[in-house]
Design a protein around this nucleic acid. Sequence first.
DNA 1: CCTACTTTGTTGTCAATGACTACTTTCATT
DNA 2: AATGAAAGTAGTCATTGACAACAAAGTAGG
Lengths: 204, 204
Amino acid sequence: MTQQPYHHGKLREALLARAMESIEEVGVDGLSLRQLARDVNVSHGAPAKHFRDKQALIDALALAGFELMNSLIRNASQSNLELRSRFVGVGKAYVEFAVAHPALLTVMYSSKHHPDSSAELRSTGEQGIHLAQAMIVEGQKAGELAEGDPGILATVCFVSLHGAAVLAAGKHLDGTTVDDIVNATTDTLWAGMAAGVRAAQFTP
Amino acid sequence: MTQQPYHHGKLREALLARAMESIEEVGVDGLSLRQLARDVNVSHGAPAKHFRDKQALIDALALAGFELMNSLIRNASQSNLELRSRFVGVGKAYVEFAVAHPALLTVMYSSKHHPDSSAELRSTGEQGIHLAQAMIVEGQKAGELAEGDPGILATVCFVSLHGAAVLAAGKHLDGTTVDDIVNATTDTLWAGMAAGVRAAQFTP
DNA sequence: CCTACTTTGTTGTCAATGACTACTTTCATT
DNA sequence: AATGAAAGTAGTCATTGACAACAAAGTAGG
């Protein structure tokens, strides 16, 4: 037996890595600082030196999730396909990420993060919308999409795909495959943006 | 001081009612069986007679949430307005419910319910899609919407509005008002369904 | 009325957890 | 080497969910 060194050295990283695995097995509620400490062979008080409290660890987890997700959808948006296919591809990347890391997605959008981390979290989370907006502007310039506020349209696309992601991750879409849903959703959105919108306000 | 009767009489109802308030104040994690018991002036072991464990109470809460939500969107769908306005109205009812009861919405779709309650929960939760599907069929018959599998289209609408509901409830849509988002989303979806979809499959 | 039986609620207990404090070991910098 | 900050350890506390043993109240059937 070699003796454990007094200093772990990379405790913060180790805790985050283990937490990212653990969360998909036992859920956020099942996460326990003490259990994480045991998992990495460290005393139960050690995590406090790196994460003020449990929420701080969860916040760090959420940020890591957004960064992973952003890199995935960025890749999808930079393929050589035509615009519309790239649009579908980004949607697919988003939903596939959600299905692969359902608990992480929940944490990312959990909206009970510490005020401090909220700002960084929010700006990182908004990169997806900006990417969608850029694609919509591109489509409008090419005449492929009708005119319309690209900011709102991007939000509509994000909102819709987020719904697909959340429901697919939560296994609430039994009847149809993930692919079918993303195809149908992006098709409908694209058709709607191509046709342009004659707003019919709703006045109760 | 009148003495508390030994039997509360309506403990189950009282616990659920208090939990429904409490959850919006402190979140699901903040819910405590013991605190709920204190709130209704009952011993800390009493809730166990009505809810086997904490999750059982949460399951009951979720079911109540779906029933409330269903009644709201059903009302919206039965107005005297033309079809398209009713469609917008249903979407608005859904999202407004989500904004009014954000924590409850989270619980409803939390996907960690006891297996027993899952069946009833699922069927109650699916009523919204059926309602959307009926409206889409009506629109297709009237020639207002293009042909297309109403089941998939209904799912697309549900998914999209669910995304709006979730994000609005979590205050992740700062830039725009809830009304704007719902209008833009329903407008885009309707336009897409009216124009019909020429599917462009995505092949990576 | 009265005696069994079931439901509901009470009390006490247990292990686990998050947070806190005081202490010790390691490391970097001078 | 000396020293002070950073990282880890050990002990403690209140709270929680779950469970078990018991008491009280309602509900039959005779």
